[in-house]
Simulated assay, not measured.
Amino acid sequence: MIKKNSFLVIVITLLTTSTSLKTQAQERAIEVSSIRNSDKSVDIQYQKNKPGSYTIKVKFSNISNTFASDYEDVIQYGSGTLITLRPQNSNLDIGYSYNYSYSMGNQKPKVDSLFQYLLPFKKGKKVTVYESTNLNEEYFGAEKVDSWKSYHITSTTADSIFAMRKGIVVDLKNEYQTDTVTNMVYTSKKNTLLIEHEDGTYAAYKGFKKDSFKVKLGDIVYPNTMLGVLDRFNNKRYVLHFNIYYHDQSRIVDNTNATLKTAKSTHAFVTPYFFTKEGLIKIVPKSSFTSETNESIITKEMSKKEIKQHLKSKTI
């Protein structure tokens, strides 16, 4: 806990947003195994235990009776075969060894910088949007993140929060009760939701009341899907922090032994366009906008089946 000006308090933990390509066995997001087949071939298979996309790398060594090059790809499904090793001499077994590493997300995303997002509040809600500072940079002298772009909105009511875009819930933290500490300027102890989008970007939403989530890990959400309810902050108001980012391969680093000052982000942040009652805008800090939506934005990334189900639900 850090005191500022003798009366403001910041509660902060390591705010690194990176995930190293180093295999993290304790998480067991991805498990890789090999199976020898009757025709002497070998299948290198994977099991994915968490939702969302993962980039996986497999490096081979001690190869005999086959040809194998190092493998790298993005996996999205729950399980499958990464590569099949085939014998050069069908009468002999293949000799091989391998190791693998993985990281959350697509390291080569196809980011749609012109995509239109919704403000994460109920239609008709007028909000004032502020830019958030990077706490590691401001208070701990961490290296500046060139693309840093994060926002926060304060409210006097416990508003419901809605999805800005279609995606899959890939992380959900529902741990913290309402903090009654006053004069607090920031705390990292926030209930959070992370949603992966089709183009490889992520939306992070922070500041939910414990047990208020209306979605769960692995759920598909659509624009204007209710996600949860805001929690009280500083014992008097409600604050939503949110940003949109993607994994930048050029920034991959190992933060295993990093400190608050030396930790480096592997994320590049997006300055999105928002569809509002005032028009299609990019956020101008400290300006007010009114949340708006329409059918074309809600259905833009839906499959034909999803559109059919959406239209059916509206007639019920």
Results as ranks from 00 to 15, higher is better:
Lys166Glu: 13
Asn255Ala: 05
Asp171Pro: 00
Tyr202Gly: 08
Leu260Ser: 06
Lys214Gly: 01
Asp219Trp: 02
Gly167Ser: 09
Asp171Gln: 05
Gly167Gln: 05
Ala204Ile: 12
Leu217Gln: 09
Val270Gly: 05
Asp171Val: 01
His267Gly: 07
Gln249Glu: 15
Phe269Ile: 02
Glu196Ala: 13
Ala258His: 04
Ala268Val: 06
Asn234Val: 05
Tyr202Trp: 14
Phe162Tyr: 15
Gln177Phe: 12
Phe233Asp: 03
Asp199Gly: 04
Asp211Ala: 10
Val270Leu: 15
Thr225Val: 04
Val215Phe: 07
Asp211Tyr: 14
Thr178Gly: 08
Lys264Tyr: 02
Arg232Trp: 00
Glu198His: 06
Val185Ala: 11
Val239Gln: 13
Val170Cys: 02
Asn234Lys: 10
Gly207Leu: 09
Lys189Pro: 00
Thr256Cys: 02
Glu175Gln: 14
Val185Glu: 14
Tyr245Pro: 05
Lys209Leu: 12
Tyr246Thr: 06
Val239Glu: 15
Val185Trp: 13
Ala258Tyr: 07
Ile220Glu: 09
Val185His: 05
Phe242Ser: 01
Thr201Tyr: 03
Lys190Tyr: 01
Pro272Asp: 14
Thr178Cys: 07
Tyr176Thr: 11
Asn174Cys: 11
Val270Arg: 02
Asn257Ile: 08
Thr192Pro: 00
Gly167Ala: 11
Phe162Ala: 03
Pro223Cys: 10
Asp248Val: 05
Thr192Arg: 05
Lys190His: 04
Val253Trp: 04
Ala263Asn: 13
Asp199Arg: 06
Thr256Asp: 11
Ile252Pro: 03
Phe242Lys: 00
Pro223Ile: 05
Gly228Asn: 03
Gln249Thr: 12
Asp254Cys: 07
Phe242Gln: 03
His247Tyr: 14
Ala203Leu: 04
Asn191Ser: 08
Pro223Leu: 08
Val239His: 03
Ile220Trp: 02
Val185Leu: 15
His197Phe: 05
Val270Ile: 15
Thr271Val: 08
Met164Tyr: 00
Ser188Lys: 08
